[in-house]
Design a protein around this nucleic acid. Structure first.
Length: 350
DNA sequence: AAAGTCTTCAACCGCCGGCGA
DNA sequence: CTCGCCGGCGGTTGAAGACTT
C-alpha cells in the first residue's frame, strides 16, 4: 500500500541543507535525542520532513561519522562483504564503523564497481567476465596482422595491473619475436581444436582469474582452492624462458580443471569452476621467491586480508596508507581472494 | 578562457517490513 | 485480520565541481 511522499505536503523544503538547518538539527538532537522523526522537524523548527532529517543526521551530521577517503582496508572489506552480501549496503555499513550505507553505496558505484569492470570482473557476481577475457581472437589477429601489433601491446600494457609483469613481458616479447622471426612454433592456431597444442600466450594471460564466489557459500579458501595438474610439457613446444617461468608458476599452486572449453582444457588452464570458490591470485602472490618476501601462497591464504599484509613482493607493492588509484587497482587483483577477515562475523548471514 | 563532458555524492524517491491500534 | 504509521533500505537523480578539449 504505497504512501504519498512525505515531503509533498505542507510545502516542506527539499534539496541541500543549509548550515543553519544543520545546526538546528544538531542542537535539537543533542538536547532531546533522536526518535520520533515525524515530529522532530516541527519541534526543531525545521521546514523539513522527518525522513529528510533522519537522512541528514544518519548520513552526514552524526558525530561518529568517519569522513574522508576510504582506507585500503575499508575498501578491501567492502569488496569482500559485497561478494557475500550483495547490495546489502546497510549490512556492509554495519561492519564498517563510521561509514554509512549511503557512503558505501556511492563509493561502490563510483569507484569499486568501475574498477572491477575495468578488470573484467562482473561487479554483481564477482566472477570474471569471460566474454571479455577471450583474448584468443585478439591474439590471433595480432599475430597475423602486423598493423595490430601496436594495439596488442596496448592491451598487454593495460593488463599490467592484473598479470605478473614477467609474464606480460614474456607475452609481449613472444609477440614481437614472432613478428620479427616469423617463428612458426609460436603461431597460435586459429581453429579451436588446435589451440592447445603449442605455447599459447593466452595461457600466460589465463592467470587473469578472479574468484568465483558463490553467494551464500562460505568455505575454507584453502580447501576450496582448485587443484591443477602440473603441466606436462613433454609434447609442447616452449621457449625455454617461457617454460621455466610457467613451470615455476604452475607448480606453485594446483588447480582442478574440469568442464573447460577447448583452450581452457589445456593442462595449464586453471579457470574457476562454477560450483566452488576459486582463489586465483596474481602471480606475485604465488611468487616462487616467497621465502624472500614472505608473501607466498600460503601466507596469503592464511593471513586475514584486513591485516597489514606485507605487500612488498617483486611485482605488487602497495603502501596501503598512501597508494594511488592505480595502485589500488593493481592490488585489487591480489586482494580479490575474498578471504573473510577473522574480525568479520558473517555467520549471521548464512 | 570558454564550452563541453565526466565524476562525485548528498539527497530524494518509492517500496517494504515491523508494529501497534 | 486490517489498516496506518514509522523507520529503514536500495536505487536513482541532479547539482556542483573537476577535468578535458
Amino acid at each position: 500500500m504505497g504512501r504519498a511522499p512525505c515531503c509533498d505536503k505542507n510545502g516542506l523544503k527539499k534539496g541541500p541543507w543549509t548550515p543553519e538547518e544543520d545546526q538546528k538539527l544538531i542542537d535539537y538532537i543533542q538536547r532531546h535525542g533522536y526518535g520520533n522523526w515525524r515530529t522532530l522537524p516541527k519541534n526543531a523548527g525545521l521546514q523539513r520532513c522527518g525522513k529528510s532529517c533522519r537522512l541528514r543526521w544518519t548520513n552526514y551530521l552524526r558525530p561518529d561519522i568517519k569522513r574522508g577517503r576510504f582506507s585500503f582496508e575499508e575498501e578491501e572489506t567492502i569488496i569482500q562483504l559485497h561478494s557475500i552480501l550483495g547490495n546489502k549496503w546497510s549490512a556492509i555499513a554495519a561492519r564498517l564503523p563510521g561509514r554509512t550505507d549511503n557512503e558505501i553505496k556511492n563509493y561502490w558505484n563510483t569507484h569499486i564497481r568501475k574498477r572491477l569492470l575495468r578488470m573484467g570482473i562482473d561487479p554483481v557476481t564477482h566472477s570474471p567476465r569471460l566474454d571479455l577475457l577471450d583474448l584468443s581472437s585478439i591474439l590471433n589477429t595480432s599475430l597475423y596482422d602486423n598493423s595490430s601489433q601496436m594495439n596488442m601491446s596496448r592491451i598487454l600494457f593495460g593488463l599490467q595491473p592484473l598479470v605478473n609483469p614477467e609474464l606480460l613481458r614474456l607475452a609481449t616479447s613472444l609477440l614481437s619475436s614472432h613478428h620479427q622471426r616469423e617463428n612458426p612454433s609460436f603461431v597460435l592456431q586459429s581453429s579451436a581444436e588446435e589451440q592447445t597444442q603449442l605455447y599459447n600466450p593466452q595461457q600466460a594471460l589465463s592467470q587473469i582469474q578472479v574468484p568465483f564466489v558463490q553467494h551464500n557459500h562460505i568455505s575454507d579458501p584453502i580447501q576450496d582452492l582448485p587443484t591443477c595438474t602440473p603441466l606436462d610439457t613433454s609434447n609442447a613446444t616452449f621457449p625455454s624462458e617461457a617454460h621455466q617461468l610457467m613451470q615455476a608458476d604452475v607448480n606453485s599452486f594446483s588447480c582442478q580443471a574440469t568442464q573447460l572449453n577447448d583452450w581452457q582444457s589445456s593442462e595449464m588452464a586453471c579457470l574457476p569452476q562454477p560450483n566452488f570458490e576459486c582463489y586465483v591470485l596474481d602471480q606475485s602472490m604465488i611468487n616462487h621467491n616467497s621465502s624472500d618476501n614472505n608473501f607466498g601462497l600460503q601466507s596469503v591464504m592464511s593471513t586475514p586480508s584486513s591485516s597489514s599484509t606485507p605487500l612488498n613482493s617483486s611485482s605488487t607493492y602497495i603502501n596501503s596508507s598512501s597508494c594511488t588509484e592505480d595502485e589500488r587497482e593493481s592490488y585489487c587483483s591480489n586482494m580479490l581472494k575474498f578471504e573473510i577477515p577473522d574480525i568479520l562475523d558473517v555467520s549471521d548471514f548464512m
